[in-house]
């Protein structure tokens, strides 16, 4: 099944697990996603093997980065009719608060889509959306159809 068909089926059923299962890294860290009207929220459930700071304990900063980057790519496939996983050009992340060993949520916003490049802003939080743990932005190359 190609990505467009997977996205179409997922939008119809509200079940995005088949789409996410196409990406082994997403399965590895445990990403899920849920649709709320036109919005989608990605979730990284607390998972022991994602810990990177044993003292707090907290999730590895690289995993939070990977989760945000992956969410942005999925977001482009889901809402911008991008037919396969878009290639990332650059990724910049600010760590604002500790990302505790808890469920983490991500929301994406398309800042600008040109013909060949898309700019996505990405926000991650745990306790409440008003207290982000990290913010990031990424550029992706949009694959030609």
């Amino acid at each position: 099944m190609n990505v467009r068909e997977l996205v179409k089926k997922a939008h119809e059923t509200g079940d995005y697990s088949d789409l996410i299962a196409e990406i082994p890294y997403a399965k590895k860290i445990g990403v899920t996603c849920e649709r709320f009207g036109d919005d989608v929220i990605f979730k990284l459930p607390a998972n022991k093997s994602n810990i990177g700071n044993p003292l707090l304990p907290a999730i590895h900063g690289g995993v939070i980065g990977g989760f945000m980057e992956l969410s942005a790519a999925l977001y482009l496939m889901m809402f911008q009719d991008v037919p396969k996983l878009p290639k990332i050009v650059d990724f910049s992340i600010d760590y604002l608060r500790a990302g505790y060993y808890q469920d983490t949520f991500v929301e994406c916003e398309l800042t600008r889509q040109g013909k060949r490049v898309a700019n996505v802003s990405i926000y991650a939080w745990q306790k409440t959306r008003g207290e982000p743990i990290t913010t990031a932005r990424a550029h992706f190359l949009i694959p030609e159809n």
Partner: peptide
């Protein structure tokens, strides 16, 4: 490998 692994 996904970019996330490179980030880590």
């Amino acid at each position: 490998m996904h970019g996330g692994a490179i980030t880590t």
